[in-house]
């Protein structure tokens, strides 16, 4: 049997944008369908969960807050891997992936912050507290905003790709440092009342809906990411067509 037949599929199969479009096009509706099913299942399970004896009905917010927070970090992870793809492996679609993910990650981070506020006010009496986790997520949000600003500011795609990749990686290297320092700062300035952000130990009645919602959110991101990558590829095609036309017009 020839070598090519036994070759395992790899990310390099997607290296060609045309190939990516051909694969992503039919895949996206399926991904969207699975996402919708999971979301429906998750919501149904969430609303059937009993009211938590400590938190009352506000535990419902947990089912959309925690997945948003997980996704904000998962998204940055995807961006970091993409950044490595640009700098180390020079994968042609790595930059496309980073740009497609950045706004989505920013939205998830903001969602985590806002839903967290709405959960915090009835539960712990404050819209915002400077505890380690909230502060770290706020800093992550600022990192996202910086990356988005940078993406808009640099015109040349190649320069922008490298810049975004480097800044994303420097950011990810620093995330443990930031988390550690914020934790340190927070333990020094421990607020008077002890906050228990985790709530009581997770009962399966709450854990299962949470996991399903987390899975639904993850698939939502994957679907959306595939869609956004497709749009970014189209955008680059348009750009190269226009530049080609300008070049030919100039030469004619």
């Amino acid at each position: 049997m020839s070598e090519t037949a036994i070759r395992r599929a790899s990310l390099w199969d997607f290296a060609n944008p045309t190939r990516y479009l051909a694969i992503a096009g039919p895949a996206i509706p399926w991904l969207a369908g699975v996402t919708a099913l999971l979301l429906a299942a998750g919501l149904w399970m969430s609303f059937r969960a009993p009211a938590d004896y400590q938190q009352g009905a506000t535990v419902l917010i947990m089912f959309i807050h925690v997945p948003a927070a997980w996704l904000s970090m998962f998204c940055y992870g995807v961006m970091s891997v993409s950044a490595l793809g640009t700098l180390v492996w020079r994968h042609p679609l790595a930059d496309v992936s980073l740009r497609a993910a950045a706004p989505v990650g920013a939205v998830f981070t903001l969602l985590a912050l806002v839903t967290g506020s709405l959960w915090g006010k009835p539960m712990w009496g404050a819209w915002w507290v400077w505890d380690a986790r909230l502060t770290s997520v706020l800093v992550l949000f600022i990192i996202y905003l910086g990356l988005l600003a940078l993406a808009r500011a640099i015109e040349d795609p190649a320069t922008a790709a490298r810049a975004l990749a480097v800044v994303t990686l420097v950011g990810s290297v620093n995330l443990p440092i930031i988390k550690f320092s914020v934790n340190w700062w927070n333990t020094l300035h421990q607020p008077a009342s002890v906050m228990r952000m985790d709530g009581p130990k997770m009962d399966p009645a709450f854990l299962y809906p949470l996991l399903v919602m987390a899975l639904a959110y993850t698939l939502f991101f994957i679907t959306l990411h595939a869609m956004n990558m497709r749009n970014e590829i189209l955008r680059r095609r348009i750009r190269s067509m226009r530049m080609n036309a300008a070049r030919e017009a100039g030469g004619a």
Partner: peptide, 27 residues
């Protein structure tokens, strides 16, 4: 370095670097 090609990169630099220097401030 990242904004060297931009005319008014000052504010973008500040937003980019601010999260990274927070540990410096804290300690």
């Amino acid at each position: 370095a990242v904004t060297v090609t931009l005319a008014r990169g000052g504010l973008v630099i500040a937003v980019l670097i601010l999260p990274l220097v927070i540990p410096v401030l804290i300690f």
